[in-house]
Write a protein that binds this DNA or RNA. Structure first.
Lengths: 100, 100
DNA sequence: TAAAGTACTTTGAGATGCAAAGTTAATATA
DNA sequence: TATATTAACTTTGCATCTCAAAGTACTTTA
C-alpha cells in the first residue's frame, strides 16, 4: 500500500478551511459575513484562514460596495477546486482502502 | 444551514491521525512498525500521534513479545470507530451540502 | 564486546490556532 | 460637528501542535 497521507492536502487539515472550501464549491460566490456566521468564527480567525487559502491560490478575493457598504466576496479558483476535489478523492481512498 | 464544522472531530484534523485510524478501521490490529513504514513517519512523530489518539480513548495499546522481541499493537476502540465514522459522515455532509 | 532493533520519551525549534483588541475608512446618527 | 456604527481586517500574544533528532532502556545478534 502506498502512503495514504500523501493523498491529502495539508492546506485542508483544518476543519475551518475545509468548511470554507466546501461552501465555495457549492456557492459560486460568498461574502465575509456569510462565512463568519455560518462557520461561527471571529473576524480575526476567519480572516487568517482566508488569507491562508488565498496565499495557496485556492480562493480569489473581490472587494466592492453594495450601496454604501463595503462588501468582500470570495470565490474558489480553478486550482482551489481541483485541489479540494483531489483531497476529497484522497479521503475516499483512505476510507475505502482494503489495505493489506 | 447549521455550522458544518461541528460535524467534524478536531482529533482528526491531522492527516496522520486520519491515516492511523483509517488503517485501524480495516486492519483489526496493527503494530508500530507497520504504521511507521506505511505512513513514513519517524518514531517520535508516530508515537506522539498515537499517544494523542490513546488519550482520546480512540485506540487501545497492547504490548507483548513475539519470540524475544517486544511488539506493540494498536486497535481502534468502539468509541474510536464510532468517532471516526461520525467524522466521515460529517465530511460527506460537508461535501454534499447543497447549502443555501 | 559491539552493533542493531523495538518502542518509546525528551528536547527544542518552528508553525499554527485562537480570541481579543486595535485599525482604517466609510457612513449614520445626535 | 462629534460620536457611533459597520465592514473587514491586522496585530498581539499566548497556547497548542508538529516535527526531527537525540536520548533511553532493554534485548538480541554478530
Amino acid at each position: 500500500m502506498p502512503n495514504p497521507i500523501l493523498l491529502l492536502n495539508k492546506a485542508f487539515d483544518s476543519r475551518i478551511r475545509l468548511g470554507i472550501m466546501a461552501i465555495l464549491m457549492t456557492n459560486e460566490r460568498t461574502d465575509f459575513n456569510y462565512l463568519k456566521e455560518t462557520l461561527e468564527l471571529t473576524d480575526g480567525n476567519l480572516a487568517s484562514h482566508i488569507s491562508a487559502l488565498e496565499q495557496a491560490n485556492f480562493i480569489e478575493v473581490s472587494k466592492q460596495f453594495i450601496g454604501k457598504k463595503p462588501n468582500t466576496t470570495y470565490k474558489a479558483t480553478p486550482e482551489g477546486k481541483e485541489a479540494f476535489k483531489k483531497h476529497i478523492d484522497g479521503l475516499e481512498q483512505l476510507i475505502r482502502t482494503d489495505n493489506l
